[in-house]
């Protein structure tokens, strides 16, 4: 473990010393031994504060959206989840591949619950790979939770999601953490358009939940950052995954972020799509 951490520090230090990148995004220590925090290292000396352990759970890719036109390349430690996010962002015209330097760090499994669905530990896109790829662990059943909700009656489903969203505090952490939530201005912040009621009520909360899922559902890379960020621990991936499950059933095998060329499901159409609205 510390060997890998050392490699990461050395690689970041070299990149910064050579002026290859403007800064490196990685993980740093906090005062708690079971937490890490994303850090932005902009000097070679700072590289010593990088940390790699099983608590490095944050997905770093989201921060790329805060600096879309960097003067120099951005160095980013990329695991499977970061690389899928980067692929998605490139396709969505959010970042340019040329402005990134991806330091591939195959993931050895983290302590977060969000990793239970992980299907890709190794970065799919990188400029350098710091160590040998890891074997992918068998992920949990991808749509198990969705099937659980589907098995309920319509009224039970409504009560289930109503109960979930009754606890939502509308902090929008799910939106802030999501690597594919990339609008410059989010519709929930447009207070006067009338799209989204601001009231903290079951109705407004549920509508926020469904709309959020619909906005990102067809581009969701299933990294689980939304659930990790949710301070109320709500099972909100149950919504985005429903979208993915339906897309899988409608148009065949569908997974996002595996490459930077695939259109999102709702961003294209097919003349031969199923037609049930005749």
């Amino acid at each position: 473990m510390s060997d890998r951490q050392e490699k990461m520090r050395q690689s970041a230090e070299k990149l910064l010393r050579d002026g290859e990148v403007g800064y490196v995004i990685g993980w740093g220590a906090t005062r708690f031994c079971d937490r890490t925090t994303p850090v932005f290292i902009d000097s070679p000396e700072g590289a010593a504060s990088l940390v790699w352990n099983e608590h490095a759970v944050n997905s770093l890719a989201k921060y790329l959206l805060d600096d879309k036109y960097p003067d120099k390349k951005i160095g980013l430690f990329a695991r499977g989840c970061e690389s899928r996010a980067v692929n998605r962002m490139i396709k969505d015209n959010q970042v340019k591949r040329e402005s990134l330097y991806l330091i591939g760090v195959p993931c050895d499994g983290k302590s977060s619950d969000r990793c239970r669905l992980c299907r890709e530990r190794n970065p799919l896109v990188y400029d350098v790979l710091l160590w040998e790829p890891e074997a992918n662990a068998a992920p949990a059943d991808r749509f198990e939770r969705v099937r659980g909700v589907e098995a309920m009656s319509p009224d039970e489903r409504y009560r289930y999601w109503g109960g979930v969203y009754d606890r939502c505090i509308r902090c929008y952490a799910c939106r802030n953490a999501c690597p594919v939530c990339s609008c410059r201005e989010c519709y929930v912040d447009m207070g006067r358009t009338g799209f989204q009621g601001k009231q903290h009520s079951r109705s407004d909360n549920q509508i926020f939940g469904v709309t959020r899922a619909f906005h990102v559902g067809d581009r969701c890379i299933e990294c689980g950052e939304c659930e990790r960020a949710c301070p109320m621990g709500l099972p909100i991936m149950g919504q985005t995954q429903k979208m993915l499950k339906e897309i899988n059933e409608l148009s065949g095998e569908y997974e996002c972020g595996l490459d930077a060329d695939s259109d999102s499901f709702l961003g294209r159409f097919d003349l031969d799509d199923k037609d049930e609205f005749m």
């Binding site: 109503g162 559902g217 919504q239």
Partner: peptide, 9 residues
């Protein structure tokens, strides 16, 4: 499908 999943008839 999303509406049905969320309990709308």
């Amino acid at each position: 499908r999303m509406l049905e999943y969320n309990g709308i008839d």
